[in-house]
């Protein structure tokens, strides 16, 4: 057991190092979030009526958009290991090779925490004025953490299944796309009714509504419970899927 923890720590250190040194990953987790933020606030924001300063509306959406980028990086990093000799080396050693996934997922959480901090910091500079108390901040952070953890395991599962890094990247496409079909950037009541249907029945909308409510005081209603249920459900399912896909991948 203590060995399992030590092995995971080693693999976490490795994944963080690899992520920090991979230019693409760095761009995806620092530059892209900032660009998206500027794009939405300065270019599209003026044309969208949300009943409040657009920056106050859009911050949770940008954060969730970034979790998509982060997940794509994670899927690609896992796929890289599964399709290079590295997984064979790890599997031929007397360790639980599953630690390679744990390493990437934890690094993914660390990267997302960094991106989110950068986004929130930049948002403040652009005029973001949340009304949240400390407890509300913590609740928002907790929900985001849970959601990111779930998404990271899902990404790890996709990476374990992918036969190449490119395949992993295209499989993660829907994670990048989903935020656009939610209330992230425009209120859903402006959407055609079939899009409203999609928007209401995917996890991102309740998570965003809840985070937005916690930070800026918009009504949350039953969205908090739904967001929590989605995140926990997704986490359990993603972890099970990742474990199963990894097992299947390493047996031939």
């Amino acid at each position: 057991m203590s060995h399992a923890i030590a092995d995971s720590m080693t693999m976490i250190g490795r994944s963080i190092r690899l992520g920090r040194r991979n230019a693409e990953t760095l761009i995806m987790s620092i530059v892209l979030p900032l660009m998206m933020m500027a794009l939405f606030v300065y270019v599209f924001g003026g044309a969208i009526d949300t009943g409040t300063a657009y920056i106050n509306y859009v911050v949770p959406g940008i954060i969730l958009l970034c979790t998509g980028f982060g997940a794509a990086s994670t899927a690609m990093a896992v796929a890289d290991d599964m399709n290079s000799g590295m997984i064979d080396r790890l599997r031929s050693m007397p360790i639980r090779s599953f630690a390679v996934l744990t390493g990437h997922v934890t690094a993914s959480i660390a990267r997302n925490t960094m991106s989110t901090t950068i986004v929130v910091g930049a948002a403040f500079a652009m005029g973001f004025r949340p009304s949240a108390s400390l407890v509300e901040w913590l609740a928002a952070a907790g929900l985001l953490l849970l959601y990111v953890l779930a998404l990271s395991w899902l990404a790890a599962g996709l990476g374990a299944m992918a036969k190449s890094v490119e395949a992993a990247s295209s499989m993660s496409f829907f994670m990048l796309f989903l935020p656009y079909l939610s209330s992230a950037f425009v209120p859903t009541d402006t959407m055609p009714s079939f899009l409203q249907g999609i928007s209401e029945h995917q996890p991102i909308t309740p998570v965003i509504e809840t985070v937005r409510g916690l930070l800026t005081g918009t009504p949350i209603g039953d969205k908090g419970g739904i967001a929590l249920a989605w995140s926990v459900g997704l986490l359990v399912a993603s972890f099970a899927i990742a474990t199963a896909l990894y097992r299947r991948r390493i047996t031939d």
């Binding site: 490795r14 190092r17 690899l18 040194r21 991979n22 290079s84 000799g85 590295m86 064979d88 080396r89």
Partner: peptide, 14 residues
């Protein structure tokens, strides 16, 4: 045992 596979198993970024 230890294995050195047909394709080098090293991390390029480390």
């Amino acid at each position: 045992i230890s294995l050195t596979g047909q394709y080098a198993a090293v991390d390029g970024e480390q």
